[in-house]
Design a protein around this nucleic acid. Structure first.
Lengths: 110, 110
DNA sequence: AATCATTGCTACCGATAGCGTAACAATCAG
DNA sequence: CTGATTGTTACGCTATCGGTAGCAATGATT
């Protein structure tokens, strides 16, 4: 593993990766993708799945995610992952596994 | 009542995953981890690697990431990924691959 | 020692993003 | 019709972010 890091030593962060990281850095963006993993959810169901996130923020994220073609809106059904979104979900599945190792004594710092 | 269709079966998002997603949702958090993949960087180098992020935000993220034991501070060397941080890096490597497929026509929406 | 450069970091403040609540029109059930 | 449920927007408030400047501490150079 130290070797793997070694090999990447000179690769600068790609534009696409910077975009992906920027996307991830918006509140609720990944959570929304994660909640859609089980199938389509409509606006209100999605909202409650995310712990009653503010509807204005949800609306923003939905637009952005649609813009990036990660989710799509199906009239009468709600929102669901696109093909690309399902690929992103695979990554999040890894994150889910990793999250189990997150130290527990970590509450918001200041 | 239409809700009977929605909330049938769903593995609820675990607390640890919610924490991980929350962490990812803070600006620059994952980018910082990503930039540290090449090895330790000191405060100013890290800042410039992230595209001259505001030092106050960087400082906050560094505290939080240290709190979650994702990075550690090495006196005289700067900041580097901890063991857990390197595991997170593996996940980000997946994200990096995925990012290549991110649709290009997506500029910030509002 | 005096000077200069570099370091990590903080202070300040304007700008933006996010939150919470309340509503709205449209649709559909009864 | 009435009443419930939908997606969505409006509003005002707070928290977070961003940009610039500046500090004290350390180390090198003269």
């Amino acid at each position: 593993m130290a070797q793997r890091i070694q090999n990447l030593r000179r690769a600068p962060t790609s534009d696409s990766m910077a975009r992906a990281l920027d996307l991830s850095g918006r509140r609720w963006a990944l959570r929304i993708v994660w909640e859609l993993r089980v199938g389509p959810l409509n606006f209100r169901a999605l909202r409650s799945a995310c712990g009653d996130i503010s509807p204005s923020v949800l609306q923003s994220r939905l637009h952005e995610l649609r813009n990036d073609q990660i989710i799509e809106k199906i009239p009468g059904l709600g929102y669901r992952l696109s093909t690309g979104g399902e690929k992103l979900f695979q990554v999040l599945a890894q994150l889910d596994k990793w999250s189990g190792t997150l130290s527990d004594g970590s509450r918001r710092s200041k």
